[in-house]
Design a protein around this nucleic acid. Structure first.
Lengths: 139, 139
DNA sequence: CTAAGTGCAAATCATTTGCAACCAG
DNA sequence: CTGGTTGCAAATGATTTGCACTTAG
């Protein structure tokens, strides 16, 4: 080896900051800049790639064109509002026992899972029809 | 109205053919061609878009860059082998009761969900390390 | 010296969109 | 006519990659 990775570390620190729980690469990029760790987008990409493959963070696939990343530490599933695009973490609905059963039946060793529930959040159902701006973790 | 949509219909027919359960746009495109319904890629895209919004088919987000589409009729979840990229349908693990509980707690009306379990299938665990070609619904 | 980490620029690639031609009702 | 449908070409946009430079070990 030769040099300690600066970006990955800063990224984990940023993600653990509590402001947000799921980040797009762009948000990570600007987030790092905001905390004095300005860097190139490709470095953000590679750091995320590395952290994800190392199991430190998890990549989420949302149907809006951009991947999100979250710390893998606290596992939870997600509720996605198709109207305002809020992504709300919810307690995990899948249990170990389900995995075991599936593994027995299918022969596939389940290592991870991604559950995204989608629908319309209360605010959006109540509010008029106007198209709302993306927001995350609505307070 | 004015004209009956040729592509969407052919697409549903193709997807119900049983050969495959999840299709990329590219596969749908070539699949249609193979069954004498040659068409443009953008038409495939638009047909998928329309069918998906109409609830006839469902869009799946797999972490390999391409979306997959499957008939929504028979709902099931998926097992994704991260090694050979096989996508195996498995019985759904989530129940209505879970939805109801979540809706009560979060206020989000759950309309749909996507659960993708990932891991390594039996073949890949047994086989040597070589990187295998993508295959789907391995016989 | 040596290899991993980084920045910058350029390439990829699936996905989308604009627009004119078409056609069943 | 009319408005949805289709084909073709071009635009988008997020993601990736090539490459040279830097620096810790």
């Amino acid at each position: 080896m030769s040099r300690k990775a600066r970006i990955p570390a800063a990224m984990v620190r940023l993600m653990g900051g509590g402001e947000r729980h799921a980040w797009t690469l762009e948000e990570l990029h600007s987030g790092l800049a905001r905390q004095g760790e300005a860097t190139d987008f490709s470095s953000v990409f590679r750091a995320a790639e590395k952290l994800a493959s190392g199991g430190v963070i998890r990549k989420l696939l949302i149907d809006d064109g951009r991947a999100r990343f979250e710390l893998a530490a606290a596992h939870h599933d997600h509720l996605y509002c198709t109207r305002c695009h809020a992504l709300v973490p919810v307690p995990c609905l899948i249990g170990r026992e389900d995995f075991a059963a599936l593994e027995r039946e299918t022969g596939v060793a389940v290592l991870d899972h991604q559950l995204i529930l989608s629908g319309v959040c209360r605010a959006c159902r109540t509010a008029p029809d106007q198209d709302q701006r993306p927001s995350e973790d609505p307070a």
